[in-house]
Amino acid sequence: MTKDLRNHVLVLVVLLVLWQAVYLFVGDLALRSPLDTARAAFGLVRSEGFGAHLRETATAFATALAIAIVLGVAIGFALGMNRLAGEVGEPLLVSFYSLPKITVYPIVLLIFGIGMPSKVAFGAIHGIMPIAIFTLGALRNVPPVLIRTARVLRLGAWQSAWSVLFPAARPEIFTGLRLGFSLTLIGTLLGEMFASQRGLGFLLMQAIGLHDTDLIMALTSLIVLFAVLASMMLLACDRALRHGS
């Protein structure tokens, strides 16, 4: 554990040194030093109106993530519990996952209009597929002997799904959730960047348009910080799940 901590501190130091080096190389035009960025980020967080934007993004992200998890796990189970359905559906899921979703964003806008529903939809679109694909894969990897055991115990379909399949597949499903988390966040932010009047993505797009480097750096570093911390927490949960079983 202490070794882990030391390694993470080391990574952090290397990143900061690299950042500072690039800053010295590029200059003030499009980059700020780590220290200036921290100052700008602090100023941004305390500024008026930031809270409203943050709340907007948080609401959109949480809604999108909830939708992505529920639909993703449901699709994964629907396809994972039936062999034929899995064979038919999996290539469709995988190819949809690997399509550049950004190109269909105009269609999402035409359907949902500018504002919250579009952002949520775009975030959820990004998150559903990895969760569904990992759930499907997880169910397929459940050892057949456990499924036979469930049958020997005379469990019904729902019972065996809930008390045998789900716990056995949980670690791998969780890996899918980790990926889905990151992709839903970027989806939501992209949604805000391209068509919204509120939220962090909107602020970011505005800053890019105005060449407001302070604001760009502050926002990006805050988003990165949140994403990395969340990813570390989820990874810790993931490892705990794997050790426990």
């Binding site: 980059l31 980790r178 993505g201």
Partner: peptide
């Protein structure tokens, strides 16, 4: 590999496009 793993996991949440002005500068 283990230390970098969470950073890779978080990478795709980063709006890379925000670095566009930086890319232009470089």
């Amino acid at each position: 590999a283990q230390t970098l793993s969470p950073y890779f996991g978080a990478y795709y949440a980063v709006p890379i496009y925000a670095f566009y002005p930086l890319m232009i500068a470089i």
